[in-house]
Design a protein around this nucleic acid. Structure first.
Length: 490
RNA sequence: GCGCUCGUAGCUCAGCUGGAUAGAGCAGUGGACUUCUAAUCCACCGGUCGCAGGUUCGAGUCCUGCCGGGCGCACCA
């Protein structure tokens, strides 16, 4: 064991050497204790242009520019004597393998213990205000599994941004305006009167529950004229439905900081203000009796109507106001998470962002999550009680439990549509992905418990990092070292 | 017809801004273990990265065209 005592992160030594040589680098973690570096040269100046850069990436000798191997050699020499580094050797054309000494590598254990829960966090996004809007299911029924996918994903994303030091707000856009809500209230009224729901209405036993509650709270409601009764069912029904949704999300471990009601954007004049602003920017015009936004100018397929020829605002008008509202509330980045059935909407939202004079992907990011199906033995499952109903988050939680349900939704890339196999996720077998996580947790808890029973306690003074030298420990240290990178790129 | 997205090992999926022999888990095969919870561990087996071109010193990654699955293309929300 080389008697290398190290005092700092070996990456520091690496960066020192690099700085001295004035080369750009690319480092990647490989096996435990090793870092590999691809050397690139000639990237110190951005104005070189792509063509020349490409040539300079070639690992060949050019006039006045040392070859990659020569650079690697030089870098290796610098590194060999650096603290915490056991060996540095040139491996292939342009690659440098750096072996971190066991002692240096073991230090990561100390760093983790001392940092506790803050290990892996950073201040990379410090001062940045991010608004994450997700779920935002309409209050016309329980949360469907597709939109519900964003609940754990959006929540996890929020946690990652917070770990990076950002100031994060979780927000829910509550759509209590428009035709869907009207259909909902008509459906409630029909159900309360024991009639068939309207042709275009909603079905499901939840309607009965809501209708019963409304009637219980307003005994005379069924004797009112249709319009008045419908209004009562609208107002009360939405409140009850929304309370249900909030409860479901809360049970799912997801709570929001801000709920914005679409209706308030219309009532407060925010929509008009947003349109005025866009008009000032020269991006609004009138044609065919309607008011249009010039989204095509900013990459959308066509311009979009924001005020219909009948005078009613189109759906997007509230989004204009909402985006502006978020920006005025001081958010640098506005993230909106939508289901794949809304992906056609992305283009016009990004165009809107630009129409306001903002920069897409910098001030506005629209994420699309693909569809979620629930299957059993390969066949789609409908769990709710009445035909026509869809699988809800409540159903999923009931079937899998909160932890497994969250994990089943977070585990996969949101770019892929997923089939959640109930048989798989509820099975007591190795096939069940959630078992791995639970077992790992159980084993770690067990180690700590046994350590306590044996009277073993952490002591910074007695800690000898060089003892963490076995292959297994090397692997662990490597993972630990690279895990903050995962948070960073997340 | 147009657009978005997926197509990587038998199965379910990773693969970051293109970089060294493409990685995990499960399944399969062969071992280990009088157990820090057998809900275990180790090893092996297994891949024309949908197909065909192209760009590049280098492509699973970028571009073009096909094929296949999903989802959309409203003065609906």
């Amino acid at each position: 064991m080389p008697p290398i005592r190290w005092t700092s992160d070996p990456r520091g030594a690496f960066q020192d050497a690099r700085r001295r040589l004035d080369v750009a680098h690319r480092a990647r973690s490989r096996r435990a204790g090793r870092r590999r570096a691809l050397l690139r040269h000639g990237r110190t100046s951005q104005e070189q242009g792509p063509r020349r850069l490409r040539h300079q990436h070639r690992p060949v000798v050019q006039a006045g520019v040392p070859s990659a191997t020569a650079l690697a050699d030089a870098l290796a020499k610098e590194l060999q004597h650096a603290d915490g580094i056991a060996a540095a050797e040139v491996a292939g054309p342009g690659f440098l393998n750096v072996t971190v000494s066991a002692a240096a590598q073991g230090e990561v254990a100390r760093a983790i213990v001392e940092a506790g829960a803050t290990y892996g966090t950073s201040d990379r996004l410090a001062g940045k205000r991010i608004n994450l809007e997700f779920v935002s299911a309409n209050p016309t029924g329980p949360i469907h599994i597709g939109t519900g996918r964003w609940a754990p994903v959006g929540d996890s994303l929020a946690r990652v941004f917070i770990a990076l030091g950002a100031d994060v707000t979780r927000e829910y856009y509550f759509n209590d305006h428009g035709a869907q809500v009207d259909r909902f209230s008509r459906s409630l009224l029909a159900v309360a009167r024991g009639q068939e729901p309207p042709e275009d209405g909603y079905v499901g036993s939840y309607l009965v529950d809501i209708a019963d509650q409304v009637v219980a709270g307003h005994p005379g409601v069924l004797e009112l004229p249709d319009d008045e009764a419908k209004e009562v069912f609208r107002r009360e029904g939405i409140e009850l439905m929304f309370a249900d949704i909030k409860q479901t999300l809360h049970d799912f471990g997801v709570d929001f900081d801000v709920y914005t009601h679409q209706q308030t954007l219309h009532d407060s004049g925010a929509v008009e203000r947003a349109i005025d602003r866009l008009r000032e920017m020269g991006n609004v015009y009138e044609a065919d009796g309607a008011v249009w936004l010039r989204t095509q100018k900013y990459g959308d397929d066509k311009d979009r109507v924001i005020i219909r020829s009948n005078g009613a605002p189109a759906y997007i008008s509230a989004d204009l106001a909402y985006y502006l509202d978020k920006r005025e509330r001081g958010f640098d980045l506005v993230v909106i998470m939508l289901g794949a059935d809304h992906h056609g909407y992305v283009g016009r939202l990004l165009a809107m962002c630009q129409a306001f004079g903002d920069t897409p992907h910098e001030n506005l990011e629209v994420l699309i999550g693909q569809m979620v199906n629930v299957v059993r033995d390969g066949k789609p499952v409908r769990m709710a009680k009445r035909a026509g109903s869809v699988v809800t988050i409540d159903d999923l939680i009931e079937a899998l439990g909160v932890d497994a349900a969250r994990y089943a939704l977070v585990r996969y890339s949101t770019d892929s549509n997923i089939d959640i196999d109930l048989a798989l996720w509820t099975s007591a077998s190795n096939d069940n992905p959630v078992y791995y996580v639970q077992y790992a947790s159980a084993r770690l808890a067990s180690i700590l418990r046994n350590a306590t029973e044996l009277g073993i306690a952490w002591s910074a003074a007695d800690f000898d990092p060089s003892l963490l030298a076995s292959d297994r420990e090397e692997t662990c240290c490597g993972r630990w070292l690279s895990s903050p990178g995962g948070v960073r790129s997340g």
